[in-house]
Amino acid sequence: MPLFGKSQKGPAEVVKALKEAVNALEKGDKKAEKAQEDVSKNLVLIKNMLYGTSESEPQTDIIVAQLAQELYNSNLLLLLVQNLNRIDFEGKKDVAQVFNNILRRQIGTRSPTVEYICTKSEILYTLMSGYEHQEIALNCGTMLRECARYEALAKIMLYSEDFYNFFRYVEVSTFDIASDAFSTFKELLTRHKLLCADFLETNYDKVFNHYQRLLNSENYVTRRQSLKLLGELLLDRHNFTVMTRYISNPDNLKLMMNMLKERSRNIQFEAFHVFKVFVANPNKPKPILDILLRNQDKLVEFLMKFHTDRAEDEQFNDEKAYLIRQIKELKPLPGH
């Protein structure tokens, strides 16, 4: 006797049952408890069709195709994501697992679920707002990062106004949620090189205005993570235009020079990797050159003593020696 009544419920029935249960749960009337049970039960059924269990293999492609089609037609993915906070603890994880499996579905080179979500971008916006709620933040995070693997979906997220909420999410006081939001944020800004470079170029002012706040955050982890990511972004050759623009602004240089002197050694070290780009730039604008010249001796002295215990890190020592040489040789622009 199978655990839940007739075992051979087809995809259409399960999807229908799940939809009804989620709707009942949403209404939140006295049937909610029963609805909760039904949601969990049907989620497990769908999950088992997709993943199989220890006793059974996943269902055949035909069944999975039917299931996917039912999910698209019934609009259930959106409904599940919208009601995620109402679903019980294990059910939340099942939703994420079902979502992530369906998302990866492929027919030849096509990804039908990705195409479907492109037409239902509300799913993405709802997932992004999941970071507002502690109890679903991490579940939404796993789904968002799966979505971010697909350029089309990453593009929708990057270019939406909601993207700028990430600058708030990565700074929340709960460490695990902030870190999860940061991984998603980083994925969106680095995964698809051309898309990201294009996005950063066209939205330079807005993005870096927001980014500045992260670099000045009270939260040590946020400050450290965002500084590290900044270094990675600037050193990626796809972002050449963005980098050139960033290292032409004397305020950015001042910020990095201050961070070189922060109490945290990790912040100092990450700041070094951004600072070096300013110095290595062969065409330094006058305001940048002026700052470096004004601090020429101090910088040389500072760098000589900077992280001298990293003897085994050859690349770092080479870079440091190079910077010291460059700074020593700095001369004012001719004619000034």
Partner: peptide
Amino acid sequence: ELEIATAKQLQHPNILQYHTNFVHGF
């Protein structure tokens, strides 16, 4: 991150639950 995130995805009487987590100072 992994340690905390994993513990949060597990809910069982015989698994140590974390009440909360936060950043303070370094």
